[in-house]
Design a binder for these strands. Structure first.
Lengths: 165, 165
DNA sequence: CGGAAAGTTCAGTCAATAGTGAAAGTTCAT
DNA sequence: ATGAACTTTCACTATTGACTGAACTTTCCG
């Protein structure tokens, strides 16, 4: 109920956890808590129960529940029950970073959609403005195409490394 | 002092402006106001004064000042004085999207730095955790390299289009 | 089934962030 | 130099978003 990172020999890593919270959280559009939870889960050997997370993060039950939900839908954490146990455990996924890239791709796709909608809604503007919206549209088209390719490339490279292990 | 988009024949575009505010603002880590300002500036023929922006956005002087500052440092908007005039005008830059991609690259580089620092600070962890930090490090190394390449590719393509005009 | 343990939801509280407006600071034509 | 026009700064207010904790729902062992 006291040490924010539990009794895993990780006591010194704590400020690191907070850095995760701020940075990854911000990058992924998560609240800081989710970033901290991601950090804790990455640095743990074994899968953690909610109670352990709650203790490690020094957070309320409700908050941890919301946080784990978020991490699971983001594709960075999986949850399962160990056979015979009645409680879930949470574990950082080996392919977590694919999930992050996928997330980025989705965000960018949304902006492409916005660009398309903008051109439709503000059609027949003078040359200058039309050109600006065209630039935006071209940019996001380029980005979606490129990120998609990167995702594929990254996963291919990972699979290769994986099978080499 | 009334119509939120001024008297430019853009009256119908207003909900669009707010969409810009939410989406681009969020993507760039800007407050909504900055996104809205970006939208307004994209959709304008001529450069705008602060007074015009203030009117178009229906915002306070202070807020517009902060907002323009932000857009200028982000590289999406430039400001200059028309000769003989004593007030600045603000204009959406033709190469604004390069600035956005650059911004993304910088953000990603920060996370690479975090990954490096994490491996250093949490060295000599058991295999499992070490592998996770290695994955993170590899991911961000890959992303920084790739985004850098994309930026170059995008700018090259733009230059080509440009000179073809 | 009954009920204890685990997990989720949600109204309320607290903290962080955005925006206002007035005062202070700059700039430039005269 | 002076002062009017314009811009920035900053203390305050409003808004938004995160976290808490208690009430509720679900799960599953006996």
């Amino acid at each position: 109920m006291s040490s924010p990172v539990g009794d895993d020999g990780l006591g010194a890593v704590n400020p690191l956890i907070d850095d995760f919270g701020l940075h990854i959280g911000r990058a992924m559009g998560w609240p800081p808590m989710a970033g901290r939870a991601a950090g804790v889960l990455m640095l743990r050997e074994a899968p953690m129960t909610m109670a352990e997370l709650q203790d490690a993060l020094n957070a309320s039950k409700g908050s941890v529940s919301e946080t784990t939900r978020l991490l699971v839908v983001s594709g960075t954490v999986r949850r399962f029950k160990e056979p015979g146990s009645r409680q879930y455990v949470y574990e950082w996924r080996d392919d977590a970073w694919s999930g992050c890239l996928q997330h980025q791709l989705e965000q960018t796709t949304e902006l492409l959609t916005l660009a398309e909608s903008a051109r439709r809604r503000a059609a027949d503007l003078p040359e200058r403005q039309g050109a600006r919206l065209r630039e935006m549209h071209e940019y996001y088209t380029f980005m979606v195409r490129s990120l998609d390719a990167l995702l594929e490339e990254y996963e291919a490279a990972r699979d290769t490394r994986e099978s080499a292990t």
